[in-house]
Each structure stands twice: as C-alpha cells, then as structure tokens.
Nucleic acid binder design. Structure first.
Lengths: 235, 235
DNA sequence: GCTGTACATTATGTAGTACAAATCATACCC
DNA sequence: GGGTATGATTTGTACTACATAATGTACAGC
C-alpha cells in the first residue's frame, strides 16, 4: 500500500535525495548548496545529471540558482507546497502529527464542497461509477478490499464535480494522507462502520441535493478525523 | 499588474514555449514529441538545454519520456493542475470563461473555510495585520489602492489560518484569477462596495467566531462572483 | 581618503561529442 | 509457428570546453 517511488532515472534519484534533505530541514533556507562540480562529485553523478535534478527542484520552488552567487535554498514561502513530491517529503520528515492535522483540515474543506458540486453537476455515467464503488464497499470482505473501494468512491465523487482543480487537489492531499496511515483505518473489527454515511452521500448525489450531500460528507470526514486522531495517538 | 514571467535562462524559455504548446492543446495528450536531437535543432538550442526543460515539464506531469519510445504528452489527468505555470498557461490559452468558473468555485470553497479557521487560530499579530489591511481599504482613494489593500486583507486572513497548504492554494488560485481580470473589478463608481462585508469578517475574526466569519466571507465571495460574471459577459 | 571604473575571479549557463542502456521490431532458428 | 536472438532507435549519462553574469578587488583619479 505504500507508494513505490521507484525512480529509474539517475537524476530522479538525485531529486529525491536533495528534496528530502531540503524539505527535511538539513539544508536550511538561505543556505547555499556546494558548487555543482563539487556536489556532483560528492554524489557520484555527472554534473549533467545533477543539473537536471536541480532544474526540477527549482521548478518546485525549493531552490534558486544564479551565476556566480551559486544555488541557494529558497524560503519555505516559495515552496510549491501542493506538489506531490514536496508533500511526500514533508510527510517523510515530520514526526509531529501537526502536519496531519493540516492535511485533514484540507480534506474536510474539499470533500463536502465536492459532494455538493457533484450533486449539482454529476451525469448518469458518473453516478453509476459512484454507485459501483459503493456496491464494492458493501460487498468487501476485508479491510484491504474496503480501502480500495472507499478510495474509488471518493475519486468518483470528485470526478463528478467536473472541476479538475478540485480533483488534483484531492489527489495530492489523499496520497499524502495515505502515506501516513491506512486512511480510514478502523482496526479490523468494524471496517464497514462508515457505510451508512456513504449511502447518504450517494443518495443525495443521485437526487441532486447539494446541501444534503455536503452535510453527509461533512459528517463522514469528521468521523474519519476522530478515528485518525485516535489512531495517531496510539502510534 | 500583469505578471512579468521574465525568464533569463534559456531552458526556462523552452519550458514556457513547450508548456504553452502542450497546455494549449497544440500537442495533444498521447502524441509524441520529436526526438530530442531534432527538436533541439528546430528550437535552436542545444540538447542539454532542451533536456533540462523537459525534466521540468516532466516534473509538472505534462510529459513522460522513456528510452526508445520517445517523449509523449501525458493525459491531462496526470497534469499538475495546481502548478503555477500550468495554471498560467491554461489561463493564457482558454478563451472560454468556463475555466474562470472553476477558479471561482475553488475560491468560494477555500476562503470561507479560511475565515473560519482564522477566527479559531489567529494570534494578535495576525489580527493586527488583517485590521491594518482593512484600514487601508477604507482609506483608499482609487481602485488601484483598493485592490492592493484588498489582496493584503485576504492574504492576512489566509496567514492567520496557520495552514501553509491553504495559503499556497489561495496564492495559486488568486494569481490565476488575477491574470484574467482586475479581481474584484467593480467599475470605478463604487469600488468600496464590499467594505461592510470585510468589516464583518474582521469583527468575527477578532471575536473568534468561526461560523460568523465563514458566513460573512461566503457572502463576500458570492457577491464578487456575480460581479466577475457580469464583467466577463461584457468582455 | 574617497569614489568610480576596470579587471580578475568564480559560479552557473550553454554547446557539443561520445557512449551506455533500454526497448521495440524484425529476422531467424528450432 | 513460437520463442529467442539481434539490430536499430531513442533517451540516459558522462565529460569537455567555453560563454555569461555577478561579485569582489585593486588601481587610478580626484
């Protein structure tokens, strides 16, 4: 279930390595990186590969290079916080669950709004897809199956909004959250606990009742939050 | 007021050029780019510069290259929609105001939630900053001054949420919207029209009343939307 | 002693060549 | 006819050389 992050390219590895260092705070904002030639040698790669990696990090807003001055880590203000990699690096390097709270907060903002939008704009195909995901959840036999179907449900709702910005945001937040812990991880016993909530959302979307859908989704994610909190405390 | 987008680097120019082509739809998803050597020659840059540009586009999810297969444009599903550049390219290439609606929808989701969060978590400094922005709005003499103070107000509220993900999202959405039209562009006459709304938000944040703040902000952005719609129709 | 200009220094930026690695297509052998 | 070998093609990596920009310093002039 953990994301693979398998990078075949060499520069991709360099990106990961440097990205982790920077986001993890080992190279602080304002600080300069070693010169390219030196850093390349130290990392056992060619300057070419290193530079391609630096361009990527630069695109993510993490660093900024200028001639003669060198390459320096930019202030966190300029970081592309919504970039999947940046988010993943933060998740990997923040022991505190303060960051989880922020992710959860975002989720609680997006999902109810998405449910409302979906209820307004969904087309028959999209409704079918949501329903199919619901059925799969209901029919699931273990937590693994349920998780997959659950994710499909939320994705289907998001897609029904017809707003790719929202879809993209959800994707980013969700994968980041997922990397922390099996998302809606009720311990074994009662993993279908939230099925009725999903049913309410489904029905509201079917009947095109935005406000009902919003409220149902809101309750659902609020529940999920308290579960995550409980789970996080244990760990 | 229009963003400069001045890129000194050569590969930066290539990124812009190719990015526009791809997001603008001139090179459709699934389609292959010419081989590096050929494309480099055609764009009058070295393969080195071209490759650095391609790595950036790859990081934005626009393209994907594999040996022998070549480099192909990925499906829009994989695009990093929340990337500032990608968003800017879309804004530049979409005559339809369908996209503005999506941006506005995002704004209407974020801002009320942000106002509520700010009311909950703001500290004295942040309240001061919001208040200062409000005073500047009240004291403004023309639309230009007012716009600047208005933006400062919203930024101050966002910062008071203590959630950098939300701040980042707002920044991205707002600049994209701003590139379309002077944001809350009431025509000359009555540019302070929304001042009372802002006052309500300010007061609610001061008194730490999340729900009041949310509702006030919601009305404000809803108003703003109808103005934008009216404005867009004219143009 | 102060200031302004010229130059040397040093980092990144760009170009070009050579070869490695992967993968697709074809031909070949069993 | 099917599986395997081989060759061709495209990206991946390395290395070299030089261009360009920006910084600091030294020197000349006032």
């Amino acid at each position: 279930m953990v994301k693979p992050v398998v990078v075949r390219n060499l520069h991709g590895q360099v990106v990961q390595e440097l990205g982790r260092l920077i986001v993890g705070g080992e190279i602080a904002p304002g600080q300069n990186l070693p010169r390219e030639e030196l850093l390349a040698e130290r990392m056992k790669v060619s300057r070419t590969a290193l530079r391609e990696a630096m361009k990527v990090l630069s695109a993510k807003g993490l660093i900024e290079s200028r001639q003669k001055t060198g390459t320096r880590v930019r202030d966190t203000l300029h970081w592309n916080q919504l970039d999947a990699d940046v988010l993943a690096w933060r998740c990997a390097s923040m022991p505190t669950d303060d960051f989880v709270d922020k992710l959860v907060e975002m989720r609680e903002i997006i999902e109810p709004a998405a449910a409302a939008a979906a209820a307004r704009r969904r087309n028959p195909d999209q409704l079918d897809r949501i329903e199919a995901a619901y059925e799969a959840m209901a029919a699931s036999n273990d937590r693994e199956e349920w998780s997959v179907a659950d994710l499909a449900f939320h994705e289907a709702v998001l897609h029904a909004t017809h707003n790719e910005l929202m879809i993209s945001l959800f994707a980013v937040i969700e994968t980041a959250l997922g990397s922390y812990l099996a998302l809606s991880a009720l311990k074994a016993s009662d993993f279908k606990y939230s099925l009725p909530h999903h049913k309410k959302v489904l029905d509201a979307v079917r009947r095109r009742q935005p406000e009902v859908a919003r409220e149902a989704m809101q309750k659902m994610v609020a529940d999920s939050r308290s579960n995550i909190r409980r789970h996080a405390k244990k760990a």
